[in-house]
Design a protein around this nucleic acid. Structure first.
Lengths: 243, 243
DNA sequence: CGCGGGTTTGAGAGTGTTCAATCTGTGTGG
DNA sequence: CCACACAGATTGAACACTCTCAAACCCGCG
């Protein structure tokens, strides 16, 4: 079922900067479709040449690359409000794939019309660039984890980052828990660790009482120690654009 | 000494897309300064709040982040034509530092005026976004290296990537050598390896006859084997924008 | 009840790290 | 011209972290 940008409930959350009527009108005209897919759907395939642009409306997904021999690296995780496919729209082919972790909905924008956005609504073009720069900063952060931190620190940093992102989206429950649809394979592929070692590391941190997991949710039990362990500190971000 | 955009020799190289007179005129008006600095200069500091935007006009540099305890991760290397500081201009503070590897020159653009570029010259705004997306794709690639490849594969992939980038800039000499201002510390910090292990890995690949180094240059001796080792294959890129 | 995906555990083999020294080439001051 | 300082490159050895292989285990589902 179609969701009109005028009534978009996502945009209204306090995480996002408000838009003018004109901007919303333009986006509503630009939006080609509203897509619902199950977990494990490959929204964009690595190498795909005609990938459209999307905003993740609900659910979780991730961006990844695979090597010829099949090894997979998860580049970063996508949460509601994230803009998807800018690289694909700029280059001939998408250099990465995108796959859903949960049931997910997407707003679909035709790739042909990106240029019209730059031409006609500079404010939206600026926000697209902002989102691109923001995505890059998250990849930067992941690269720091994988390049500099050991297994325990990486797991801690990943969980803290996801928890912080959920906080800005008001997805944190009163008991400090967040939805957590990743399995250990995803975590391993995101952190550049083997599945077995990821498992043992998670078990160790859990035994240390840093966090707990149950029925698809993760509860932060000791953020202080986690932050010290991962050397990960970040303040509350200001409201961000949404396309 | 000031270099006017009208006479910019860099832009004329075949690596870069041509610009209209209007675009060049706008950029020439936007350009505030032409900066020359020695090797090891910190052009942008991590956390700096008023960082301007730059185009690397000549020389090499790199973008990096450091953890509170001093460990440093190099995010990616900058070559002539690369656009610097978009993240810094979009956010309150720059989340990374930028440091030169060689004598280098930069075209300086005031951060206040980014918006005017989006507002007045959509084509340039589009190209700024293109460059941002392109930079992200390079960080993606590095993350794949650090997350998935072992030491030998990482070194091979890094050298192949730098060689390919030099090729597009016509920096490859007839003997297949490129300028190579990185020391082993930089390589280690870029690849997430210790200095000692980086040294031993480089020595091994050199003994295998894959490449050679002498007086600040690196010669690719066996690209085929390198590509197979690193599983790194990439075709010649199309001309790209330059700001 | 059996299957499959995801999780857990143990053990041995490596890859990569740390510590500590040595070596080399270059530049500086006497 | 030599002594010395210094940064970067190199080497060896012991140790630690992470990987691979192999096997169980758990749980929801047909």
């Amino acid at each position: 079922m179609r969701v009109r940008c005028f009534e978009c409930p996502l945009r209204r959350r306090r995480a996002f900067k408000p838009k003018t009527e004109t901007e919303v009108g333009f986006l509503d005209a630009l939006k080609r479709d509203h897509l619902s897919v199950p977990p494990g759907t490959e929204l964009i395939q690595q190498g795909q040449e005609d990938a459209d642009l999307y905003t993740l409306f609900s659910g979780w997904a991730f961006r990844f690359k695979t090597l010829p021999d099949g090894r997979r690296q998860i580049l970063h995780f996508l949460l509601p409000g994230d803009f998807i496919g800018l690289q694909g729209a700029m280059f001939d082919a998408s250099l990465h794939g995108v796959e859903t972790l949960t049931d997910a909905e997407f707003c679909v924008f035709p790739r042909r019309r990106v240029w019209s956005l730059f031409e006609q609504v500079p404010q939206l073009a600026f926000e697209v660039s902002w989102l691109g720069a923001h995505e890059e900063s998250m990849v930067d952060e992941n690269l720091v984890s994988v390049g500099l931190r050991n297994a325990g620190e990486r797991v801690a940093a990943l969980i803290l980052m996801l928890h912080r992102r959920c906080r800005t989206l008001d997805l944190v429950a009163p008991d400090n828990s967040i939805p957590f649809p990743l399995n250990q394979g995803h975590i391993a592929d995101a952190l550049g660790l083997s599945l077995v070692h990821t498992n043992k590391t998670i078990a160790r941190l859990r035994r240390l009482g840093l966090f707990a997991q149950s029925n698809g949710r993760l509860t932060l039990l000791n953020p202080k120690v986690m932050e010290r362990l991962a050397q990960y500190y970040e303040d509350e971000p200001a409201p961000r654009p949404i396309i």
